[in-house]
Design a binder for these strands. Structure first.
Lengths: 175, 175
DNA sequence: CAGTTCGTACAGTTTTTACTGTACGAACTA
DNA sequence: TAGTTCGTACAGTAAAAACTGTACGAACTG
């Protein structure tokens, strides 16, 4: 094995390992591998180049790179003389982590809160109703209490995401 | 629709919504639904009861509840007079979040660090080697720099997990 | 304007993951 | 000790996700 091969192999080990562990971020291995490829290239790449290096379809490259863009892990850059779109990886993983956390978590926190609030409202109507047995009211009351705890948790989570987004988290845990 | 049905429906909305959004925690919807069920029951449940309520196989309940246990979201409790195992949901979601984060992230951080360190070592050997072209050395040197950045990130992530585990995070973002 | 090139929607296929039913060991019961 | 009950391993099946190839609109080129 020559030195170039050794270097490639060492690089690929890291790409492979990281992409395998990216499911924690909600990222599939093949998308992770693409990110790894872009991370180690010191210049932007086109869809055709990615396709070539990973041996996958251009369609996959197109959709994968788009989802990486949505997660702000990759950005499109303009390069003179090329009609093709060029993409490069975001280099600062702290920033990537924060963005990922924010873009992924924020929407689902909102969805959960809305569902919980709606259910609390309906349960409170049950408590007010006349013809309801005490047993059902007790159950409703119990559920309402649990849902308020849940709301409190989601509020906390929202504030946690705030602290990520604002960079305040780096005061507690420095880079 | 009677009041009992209204209550059930309100409760199920929350369970369904939350379980759908649990993929962020790396939890499948059906496991999330099981957790939701346990969360709203104010008493521990057996595998047979879960099977009954969710209309799924006992095998699924057994494996699902085990993964919930591993994530510390559910615990087995002893109940006198019953030979069957009884399970109940962890109620404090802040704690659940912290545990989840810790148990899921810690191992994969370690794996990534090990792979990176191994590759850095190999790349440094390339730099020291005699018969290597300057071009390859430059590439190796570049990669090493990137890997050191990665290590720095994982160190940060480890300290972030520390602050979750120790509860220090709640100083920054209060409950 | 006709001819290219590029990126992506969409449908179909392959691969992966989730779920079920059978079967069996362990722990209890009489 | 024989008979139950309980939980789970394992193999097979059903469902879901990832990936590809075709096809086409948009943007460029001559």
């Amino acid at each position: 094995m020559n030195e170039q091969e050794k270097l490639d192999r060492a690089r690929e080990r890291v790409i492979e390992t990281i992409s395998q562990n990216m499911n924690l971020y909600g990222i599939t291995p093949s998308i992770g591998r693409l990110y790894g490829l872009l991370y180690f290239k010191d210049h932007p790449m086109t869809l055709d180049e990615m396709k070539e290096e990973l041996g996958m379809s251009k369609t996959s490259m197109s959709t994968s790179v788009r989802s990486l863009q949505e997660m702000k892990m990759v950005e499109k850059v303009w390069k003179k003389g090329s009609r093709k779109d060029q993409y490069q990886a975001e280099e600062d993983w702290h920033q990537t982590f924060v963005d990922l956390f924010t873009t992924k978590w924020r929407p689902s926190i909102s969805i959960n809160i809305i569902a919980i609030e709606k259910s609390i409202f309906e349960m409170e109507r049950i408590l007010e109703a006349k013809e309801v047995t005490e047993e059902i009211k007790a159950a409703a009351s119990d559920d309402i209490k649990k849902l308020h705890n849940a709301l409190q948790y989601y509020d906390w989570l929202n504030r946690l995401v705030d602290s990520f987004e604002s960079g305040e988290i780096f005061d507690l845990v420095s880079k």
